[in-house]
């Protein structure tokens, strides 16, 4: 009983319920197509690709920031790789690290601007999203005089990033698992995880407690830049070409996955396991719709509703978590203690 109660108080519980719900929903309405391996591979691939961005972005969001530039960074990383290997015919040993480095660099720039100017990361990364998109367009047109660069992807790279595990299950799933393990390790097991939670909880207190706020913030943005570029290169390996306009849809997809996964939009609370569920939920809804025979337009409606429901349930579960402990004394007062006004106060301090 108490174990069950503890389970429901974990940040990922609501996200798990959400995943289970959409899975059963589409199993019922998409029967029997939805449970076929090819369909499973379809949504698992989408989840894996989105996960490469959503997981590092979840750390950024737990630390209380947003990253809207992931789409542009994805295109920048992909284009760097494609131009170096496809246009200039240089070896992948140069193109691959360069693509990842470009992504990480623009993440670094995001973090640097956020920490130096103290501007809201929403604005900074919005500026980066547009500015970098322009830069990628400009440079690509100048060097290749087109907006789509095809690449004869090196066989090893193609197999590693764009290969298939089994049937149509992509290797991206393996990358996703690796990133998930790294992100979970950082957040749960290292002191850096503690700093990330503290930073999202209350930056001033974190600073006062001796957390190197600037370094952590910059590091997290570098992480999301790296993840974006990694997905960009993975897509080049899958499709054999890079497009300047690629990736913009991931900006909101990643935020949806992270929030549905139980991360508090203002930071300080969340878990990578929850984000994995959030990503899977997103993927099931966007792909599962094709097995129902309904028009795929409806998936956006479901996603919108799901996002709203997720935020509301997360609030409820968070209140439950805050009322943990000796019931009689704490539960009576818990409503006043966890009121938004007080949380706001605590944040402002």
């Amino acid at each position: 009983m108490s174990n069950l109660k503890n389970l429901t108080r974990r940040p990922e519980f609501a996200a798990f319920v959400g995943t289970l719900f959409v899975f059963l929903f589409f199993t019922y309405f998409g029967w029997p197509t939805f449970i076929k391996p090819l369909v499973t591979a379809g949504w698992l691939n989408v989840a894996a690709e989105l996960g490469l961005i959503a997981l590092p972005v979840s750390l950024v969001m737990i630390a209380g920031h947003l990253d809207l530039s992931v789409g542009s960074i994805l295109a920048a990383g992909a284009m760097t790789y494609a131009i170096i290997t496809g246009h200039f015919n240089l070896p992948d040993i140069i193109g691959l690290p360069a693509g990842l480095a470009v992504g990480t660099f623009f993440g670094f720039l995001n973090g640097l601007i956020v920490t130096k100017t103290k501007l809201n990361s929403f604005i900074v990364t919005l500026a980066m999203m547009f500015g970098l998109r322009g830069l990628v367009f400009g440079i690509t047109r100048l060097t290749t005089s087109t907006v789509l660069v095809s690449v004869e992807v090196n066989e090893t790279v193609r197999r590693t990033f764009g290969g298939r595990l089994y049937l149509t299950f992509e290797n991206a799933i393996v990358l996703w698992v690796i990133i998930a393990i790294i992100v979970s390790w950082i957040l749960y097991r290292t002191k850096y995880g503690n700093w990330i939670f503290a930073l999202g909880g209350d930056e001033t207190s974190a600073r006062a407690a001796g957390v190197p706020v600037e370094r952590v913030t910059i590091g997290l943005f570098m992480g999301s830049g790296f993840g974006s570029a990694l997905l960009g290169i993975t897509q080049v390996a899958l499709f054999g070409s890079a497009q300047v306009s690629a990736g913009q849809s991931y900006v909101f997809f990643s935020i949806i996955a992270v929030v549905v996964g139980g991360v508090l939009l203002t930071g300080g609370y969340g878990s990578p396991v929850g984000v994995i569920f959030g990503t899977v939920t997103f993927a099931i809804v966007s792909q599962g719709i094709y097995s129902t025979g309904w028009d795929s337009d409806w998936s956006s409606l479901i996603l919108g509703l799901l996002l709203l429901v997720a935020v509301l349930t997360n609030n409820t579960f968070r209140r439950l978590a805050l009322s943990a402990g000796d019931k009689k004394t704490s539960e009576a007062k818990s409503t006043s203690r966890t009121s938004p006004a007080e949380l706001k106060e605590a944040k402002r301090d």
Binding site: F197, G201, A206
Partner: peptide, 18 residues
């Protein structure tokens, strides 16, 4: 407000930075 982090566990918040 104790300069602490309401959504962190006690053991984590107690040792932030150390």
């Amino acid at each position: 407000f104790g300069g602490t982090f309401p959504l962190m566990t006690l053991e984590r918040s107690f040792f932030v930075g150390r």
